[in-house]
């Protein structure tokens, strides 16, 4: 236990020391908590669904959960069931084999049911395109609120996409 505490103290607080953060985002972060509270009334619950990615986009979602990005500190967390989620974060392309499972996950999600499509593949199928096995982008299967392009999009871009979806739904 002593070793663990010592290591925690040595590590210090990493959150917010993001060298690439632009100031706009830093200022936004001040408002995020308030915005999320305003819209969902509590922390934003996100359910990730991999609908057929190459697993590169997942790597960046994992990173979003590391201490540098401190997402729980700004009022969002990943949940295990779509029934607990306000938002689906979907990576793609949507394989035809996942089409049904993705639709069912969406149906199981309560309002506001925001959908953020991740990556160039989530946008339009990316390098995998559309074929006998791929439906293409997420919007071919679900109504999408925000698209975050990139291959894979880095954590801050994903964060920005999530925030955009939340603030748009407020304005809607």
């Amino acid at each position: 236990m002593y070793q663990i505490i010592k290591q925690m103290l040595r590590t210090g607080i990493k959150s917010g020391t993001t060298p690439q953060t632009d100031d706009a985002l830093r200022n936004q972060i001040q408002d995020i908590n308030a915005q999320i509270l305003n819209i969902v009334g509590r922390a934003l619950a996100i359910r990730h669904v991999d609908a057929g990615s190459c697993n590169g986009c997942e790597l960046e979602i994992h990173c979003l959960n590391n201490p540098y990005y401190n997402i729980e500190g700004i009022g969002m967390h990943f949940v295990a069931s779509p029934r607990h989620a306000d938002m689906l974060l979907v990576t793609g392309p949507v394989s035809r084999h996942m089409e049904m499972a993705l639709k069912r996950t969406y149906d199981a999600t309560p309002d506001p049911k925001l959908v953020v499509a991740l990556g160039d593949c989530g946008k339009d199928g990316g390098i995998f395109g559309e074929s006998y096995a791929s439906c293409g982008g997420i919007s071919k299967v679900l109504p999408v609120d925000v698209i975050v392009p990139g291959c894979p999009p880095p954590p801050l871009a994903i964060l920005q996409g999530i925030l955009t979806a939340v603030s748009r739904s407020k304005n809607a």
Partner: peptide, 11 residues
């Protein structure tokens, strides 16, 4: 498995 089959080889 094969839920992620997206036609990579054909592509």
């Amino acid at each position: 498995l094969a839920y992620k089959h997206k036609g990579t080889e054909k592509r």
